[in-house]
């Protein structure tokens, strides 16, 4: 979700007979529910797939600061501004925890950053949509972070120790994000007619892009089986999406807003809501780089990285000078 369509290395799930002794022992550890730690033996494909997945997850946290950062200076009150600032700061922290987890697999943060900036690595498709007004701050916190929580709660049980621990910390902080978003929506839905219309509009615009966060439908999801065997993916895309729809419909009704998808209906037989699939052509198009904000987002990240270079270099030079002076004094 924050990691979508992560390519799993290898050619599907290996049969036990095809596995080497090391691979069998590794799979046994995962099946027993043991955590894999950085210095433990692991198959190269597991390592490479995790680097891609955690890296993409980290990039999503960082790029995800942009649509909300856009509204910090225009928050309606000083309190809302302070809250939004704290939320965006959390996202930076989440990015850092995740880069830290990825680095334990033998890649550097700068290398991952360069892959993002050059367009070689992806971030979640949701952040390629614009945030047009204040109601979007409500809808993003409530829906985007709400969707992220569903995925991340499951990933707390993932097989890779550093990733699982990062998820525990992130989940604790993430529920503040979803609740502050829902709170904005409550205020607007109960506000003036115009404010309620803004809340409805934000919900309508973001609904399908949020459903896309869970990735393509299971029948088109080619990487799921091996990643699930490795427990780096805990549920299928459609299972997570269904969970999100089921919990969100009631929240929409509580707000007194219209369901953005008229086909959303409770199904007595399945015990869950039926809903319309998003437009998957649009999803694949956004992933390819043709969403409304892909170019802006990447340009903003590149500018921040380039503009910050003198600071990074300056602080390193200062640290080197201090070390040299200390050595000379000894």
């Amino acid at each position: 979700m924050y990691a979508q369509m992560v390519k799993t290395d290898g050619t599907g799930v290996k049969d036990r007979a095809e596995m080497s002794a090391d691979e069998q022992a590794f799979q046994d550890r995962i099946d027993r529910g043991e955590k894999i730690e950085p210095k433990d033996w692991m198959p190269d494909n597991y390592r490479r797939t995790l680097i891609r997945q955690i890296g993409q997850h980290a990039h999503s946290e960082i790029v995800g600061q942009l649509p909300e950062g856009n509204w910090i200076t225009r928050a309606p009150t000083l309190e809302r501004k302070a809250i939004l600032l704290a939320k965006v700061q959390d996202e930076a922290g989440h990015g850092l925890y995740l880069y830290g987890a990825a680095e334990t697999l033998g890649v550097t943060r700068d290398a991952l950053t360069e892959d993002l900036l050059a367009g070689r690595m992806k971030y979640s498709s949701i952040f390629n949509y614009p945030t047009l007004n204040w109601a979007d701050m409500g809808a993003v916190g409530w829906l985007v972070d709400g969707a992220a929580i569903i995925n991340q709660v499951a990933l707390q049980r993932t097989s890779y120790g550093p990733y699982a621990r990062a998820m525990v910390r992130i989940c604790k902080e993430e529920s503040f994000h979803a609740r502050q978003g829902f709170h904005i929506m409550m205020k607007m839905a109960r506000g003036t007619k115009e404010q309620k219309a803004m809340a409805q509009d934000a919900l309508n615009r973001l609904w399908y892009p949020v459903l896309m966060m869970f990735g393509p439908s299971d029948k088109d999801s080619v990487h799921t089986a091996q990643s699930m065997a490795w427990k780096i993916k805990m549920d299928t895309n459609d299972e997570l999406r269904q969970k999100f729809v089921d919990q969100t419909v009631q929240q929409i009704e509580y707000l007194g807003l219209e369901l953005p998808d008229p086909n959303t209906k409770w199904n007595d037989e399945t015990g869950q809501y039926d809903y319309s699939d998003p437009d998957w052509t649009e999803f694949f198009d956004v992933i390819k780089g043709n969403g409304p904000c892909n170019v802006d987002r990447l340009a903003a990240r590149n500018k921040a990285w380039d503009d910050g270079k003198w600071v990074r270099d300056g602080l390193m030079a200062h640290a080197a000078k201090k070390t040299a002076a200390k050595l000379a004094a000894e």
């Binding site: 910390r169 902080e173 602080l315 200062h318 640290a319």
Partner: peptide, 23 residues
């Protein structure tokens, strides 16, 4: 608690304050 990047120990402590003790 975790790890982070910083040019020196002083900045590492300041960054750790921001990254790991916001609550």
């Amino acid at each position: 608690f975790g790890s982070l990047h910083a040019p020196d120990a002083e900045m590492a402590i300041k960054n750790a304050r921001d990254v790991y003790t916001r609550r």
